[in-house]
Design a protein around this nucleic acid. Structure first.
Lengths: 194, 194
DNA sequence: GATGGCCATTGAACTAGGACAAGAAATGGG
DNA sequence: CCCATTTCTTGTCCTAGTTCAATGGCCATC
């Protein structure tokens, strides 16, 4: 039941026997059907969730109504709008399940409790956020400097399982270009490779 | 001497009387002249520095030799390559002083010591990184969705003091376009406003 | 007061990617 | 199994931003 999340925890920090039960007692199990919004723009984020099964994306919508996918999250990832969650202020993001999901959820109260009762998790969350930040720094750099072809090739190399799980236009919105253009990029690659 | 950093700490966490002296004893004071590289690509980052005075940027260089500025940091900000620092692995970044600086520095050992002896700082660093992450998420979204004019206007509104302190082509490299184009954007704005 | 090196500006020609439109292919719910 | 809807493809035209090159301003230094 808790194998996946326990393994995740142990990957980042060393825990005493007392710590994991504290976590387990605070996690709330949820099953969520696909196409469900876990968070909408304007709402305050009350969820920080570990994905046991399924696929989720979070995205923004700009003033012209087009979407930018910030992240795809699958098994063994956490999803949240961390800024909205931490400060309990309105979010700019949407979080949507792309498949039926099973989640382990924290809310602001239970996360608070967790960090009080098992402070070692403070370190885990710090390291998680640091990795996230480092990844996003790289991605910003890549977004600015590379071409569409390079971005796409890097994406399928880095996240080889995602294209099989999500619709192509979501990938376009992650990469920052139009669905039509992604399609053209793909035919170009197909033609040049055979 | 420690006023600025103490105030910074108190903005994010509540400390006991014992905590700040621990921090003070571990910080190393450094004066660094302008145009100094604190970190170069390929090196392992050994510094996490609080800027007491001065201006610093960190940037990447892509395979064609052009620079992308990830961040300008001024008084009351921290600079580091957090991924390289945490894992002691080679960095992809450059960190360069743009003005003469006075810094309070941690290295991997002293930061470790700090987090052991005054664990409340674990929380401070987590919250710092979270804010950084949230800001970068916004920026990625903006980079993808907005025009050069919008990016520039947002920049000067958000960081009004930076344009007076750094050369214009650094700002272009932050915004993700060529120096020539930034110049054109500025004349366009100038003409349309008077 | 001259000189050299950076920096910003301007212009012209070019290109990556977008917007729009129309059709084809897949998917899924009844 | 069929129809409706979503998703993907292809083509044409268009624009935001790039690259390259030339010019001139602004220092710092001797």
């Amino acid at each position: 039941m808790f194998e996946e999340i326990d393994q995740y925890v142990r990957r980042w920090i060393t825990v005493t026997p007392a710590d994991l039960p504290v976590l387990h007692s605070l996690l709330e199990y949820r099953e969520v059907p696909k196409k469900t919004l876990l968070l909408q723009e304007g709402e305050i984020c009350r969820i920080e969730a570990f994905i046991q099964k399924g696929c989720i994306r979070n995205y923004y919508i700009d003033e012209h109504g087009s979407e930018v996918t910030l992240q795809f999250a699958i098994e063994d990832w956490w999803v949240s709008d961390i800024a909205s969650f931490q400060d309990q202020k309105p979010s700019r993001m949407f979080i949507e399940t792309l498949e039926d999901c099973t989640l382990w959820c924290l809310n602001p109260q239970s996360k608070d409790r967790l960090l009080k009762d098992a402070p070692c998790f403070e370190r885990m969350f710090r390291i998680m956020v640091q990795r996230n930040l480092a990844r996003l720094q790289e991605r910003l750099f890549q977004t600015i400097t590379t071409t569409a072809v390079e971005k796409y090739l890097d994406f399928i190399e880095r996240y080889p399982t995602i294209p099989q799980r999500v619709a192509q236009h979501y990938i376009a919105s992650y990469l920052g270009f139009s669905p039509e253009f992604l399609s053209k990029v793909r035919t170009k690659l197909r033609d040049s490779r055979g």
